[in-house]
């Protein structure tokens, strides 16, 4: 039987891994910190998938991001999705040659341009995660376009209008809950009526019970957290052990 997934998201800003709270960033440490102090290869034994996002000055930092990705992925054997700053098929190729298996697209899926179609034809929709950053304004959920700094469209519209032809999965991230540790925003899931592709829920996890609440939700296929510090040490090991008894995760 197909299992639900526990996903860890690393946010990369220049040379550093950062914590994000409502999209405000705080430096935590560099690649050496991640590999040595954070003992990342051990952490990777207790998660089902890793997402690595290049989140600021994306164009300028793209090659540097690829270098960091190479170092992260050298000794871990789990699925890696990478994104942030992808503009073309050649960017996708660079990521695949740096240890990525899948890619994450953000503003591009909202704009639906020719490059998106080229990327889709090259890698296939099964390897494209569409990331939606969602914000609540006057009781309506909007999808925020980080590039243009605007609320691009209503979340419900994106699910209704078949804007999702070119992606295989959705990474649904709440900006309001991001980094707060208060738990996921389940209200936004009401906008999803047709549920044809897998959904990863993100934004708000403070502890393993929040992960459990995500994994128990019928609409959700994977629960993600980008909280670098809440699961430090053997945090993910403990979380996974707790989750095993209560919900369906894979074993190896």
């Amino acid at each position: 039987m197909l299992k639900k997934r526990l996903i860890f998201t690393l946010l990369v800003d220049g040379d550093n891994f950062v914590l994000s709270r409502n999209f405000n960033l705080q430096k935590v440490g560099d690649i050496n910190w991640l590999l040595d102090n954070y003992n990342f290869s051990n952490v990777s034994n207790f998660i089902d998938e890793l997402v690595v996002l290049n989140i600021r000055n994306k164009k300028k930092n793209f090659n540097n991001f690829c270098k960091i990705l190479k170092k992260i992925t050298k000794k871990i054997f789990i699925p890696i999705a990478a994104g942030g700053g992808i503009n073309s098929v050649s960017d996708v190729k660079k990521l695949l040659r740096s240890g990525a298996d899948k890619i994450v697209l953000n503003s591009m899926i909202l704009e639906e341009n020719q490059e998106l179609i080229k990327i889709y034809k090259y890698i296939g929709k099964q390897s494209i995660i569409g990331s939606l950053d969602v914000k609540l304004l006057n009781k309506t959920y909007f999808v925020y376009n980080n590039n243009k700094n605007i609320n691009q469209s209503e979340l419900s519209e994106i699910f209704d209008k078949k804007k999702l032809n070119y992606i295989g999965e959705i990474y649904l991230n709440s900006i309001d809950k991001d980094g707060t540790g208060q738990g996921y925003d389940f209200q936004m899931l009401k906008n999803i009526k047709k549920n044809e592709i897998p959904i990863i829920l993100a934004g708000g996890v403070g502890n393993w019970r929040h992960l459990l609440s995500g994994l128990e939700n019928k609409k959700i296929n994977a629960a993600a957290t980008a909280n670098l510090l809440n699961f430090i040490g053997n945090g993910f090991e403990n979380a996974r052990n707790n989750l095993f008894d209560k919900c369906d995760l894979a074993k190896w």
């Binding site: 039987m1 197909l2 089902d48 929709k125 099964q126 897998p198 994977a222 894979a250």
Partner: peptide, 26 residues
């Protein structure tokens, strides 16, 4: 069902000599 089929799934086989040698469980 939802497509793509994405994630960890278990396999069924009665042949544990070749590729799946030592992989009878989990």
């Amino acid at each position: 069902k939802k497509i793509p089929h994405i994630g960890f799934n278990s396999i069924k086989t009665d042949y544990f000599k070749g590729l799946f040698n030592g992989l009878e469980k989990n």
